[in-house]
Amino acid sequence: MAKKMRGVVLHADWDPKPEFKLGPKDIEGRQTYLGSKVWRNPRVVIEERDVPKPGPGEVLIEVKACGICGSDVHMAQPDDDGYIWYPGLTGFPSILGHEFSGVVVEAGPGAKNKATNKPFKGGEAVCAEEMLWCGSCQPCADGWPNHCERLDEIGFNVDGAFAKYIVVPDRVVWPLDPLKDVYSGEELFLAGSLVEPTSVAYNAVVERGGGIRPGDNVVICGGGPVGIAACAIMKRMGAARVILSEPEPTRAELGKKMGADYVINPLTEDFVQRVMDITDGYGAALYLEATGLPTVVYPQIEQCVWEGRALNAKIVVVARADAKMPVTAEVLQVRRAQIIGAQGHSGHGTFPRVIQAMATGMNMLPMITKQITLDEVPENLVMLRTDRKECKITVRLDKE
């Protein structure tokens, strides 16, 4: 008889909106790239599942820690009509959770450890990418696995890590050996679980946004985990002023601890005027939209670009939202500005670079503000819909 484990599973009803059309990568009744157009009445339950077995090139990992992501919250959150908030790739039922670290238990034939280029022996501390790219489609061949044409995503359309065990392909597994110089015991796995969300921020501001020159100004809109991680990355890159826009006091204080030089409360302060004051009228070289409220936030960013003296500003949009941004082309044209989309984290060595940065002084552990058990996941998913005091809530599977 197969061994059993418990997992946090999201169920929902396939009930497409009238305007939805099945796309070439959608699967009727099972999977879509337009989640908020299709899935209705989400329900989170803890169920028993079989412990998975690794096949050729796959690795079985015992999960030690897994963070709750905003996408987990939005997949489980219904709007007024019952449709999920999350707009992207989704396939239910699936075990949630994708920001994880753990220990290799068993490796299938041919599965190799990147640190040694030899087969896994078991016992290795690892983390893994959330995006399961195929490696053979055109985007993958061109070096853009984030946009794989046969993409699967851990915890979105395939079973994730809010469970004791998970199987993943070896190509997305990254050893945590460099972190052992800084962290040990449970801290190693807590830090390892932060590699994925930090890599999302890295991909947004470095790979997609192109980074900055030391001495440039940066504005981060949104003090969630990705925004906070971006503060740390941008300060490490040499930003003169990292400005965080965040109304929640606890997240604002955390932002300062992680690299923000200034914090703006957009609910009580004039965002545009404050940015102009802080930067002596220049504005910023890079703006990050990490709030998921583009109809509110983008016009303010655009006004900063228009009023600021700095040309060539880059506006990177990383938060996922169904809403359309109200863009004024004249501002982009006159100010030589760009809007850049950022998705995910895979490719171009994002994971190993984040691990090395964390191993050499970029401490991301303060982002974890609460630790919970597997049984507490459903209630915390509901709490995070409205309560923004916590930054990163992490599930401790090693306590199960």
Rank of each mutant, 00 (worst) to 15 (best):
M5E: 11
A12K: 08
A12F: 07
P16H: 10
F20D: 06
G23V: 04
G23Q: 14
P24R: 11
P24L: 11
E28G: 01
G29K: 08
Q31M: 15
G35S: 12
S36P: 02
S36T: 01
N41M: 02
R43V: 13
E48S: 11
P56Q: 09
I61S: 07
V63Q: 03
G67R: 05
I68L: 10
G70F: 01
S71D: 03
S71P: 08
M75Q: 14
G82F: 08
G88Y: 13
F100V: 01
F100N: 11
F100P: 01
S101Y: 09
G110H: 12
A115C: 01
A115K: 12
N117M: 12
N117Q: 14
P119C: 07
W133P: 00
C140S: 08
C148M: 09
N157A: 08
F162M: 04
A163F: 11
V168I: 13
R171L: 03
V172P: 06
K180Q: 15
D181N: 15
S184E: 14
S184Q: 13
E186Q: 14
L188W: 11
L188Q: 06
L190S: 09
A191E: 06
E196V: 05
E196N: 09
A204H: 09
V206D: 05
P214W: 12
G224N: 03
V226D: 01
A230D: 03
C231G: 10
A239Q: 06
S245N: 04
E246I: 08
E246F: 08
P249L: 05
G255Q: 06
M258G: 07
G259R: 08
D261S: 12
Y262P: 02
Y262V: 14
I264A: 11
P266W: 11
R274L: 00
R274T: 05
V275E: 02
M276K: 05
M276H: 06
D277Q: 15
D280E: 14
Y282D: 07
Y282W: 13
A284W: 05
A284C: 10
Y287P: 00
E289L: 02
A290H: 01
G292H: 08
L293V: 09
V297Q: 03
I301C: 00
C304Q: 01
G308N: 06
R309N: 10
N312L: 12
V318P: 02
R320M: 12
P326H: 03
V327Q: 00
V327W: 00
R336V: 01
Q338R: 15
I340M: 05
G341D: 08
Q343C: 03
Q343N: 13
G349I: 07
A357L: 15
P366C: 06
M367C: 11
I368P: 12
K370H: 15
I372H: 12
D375K: 15
D375T: 13
E376T: 04
E379A: 14
L381P: 11
L381H: 10
R385P: 03
K392Q: 04
I393W: 03
T394C: 15
V395T: 13
R396G: 00
K399E: 12
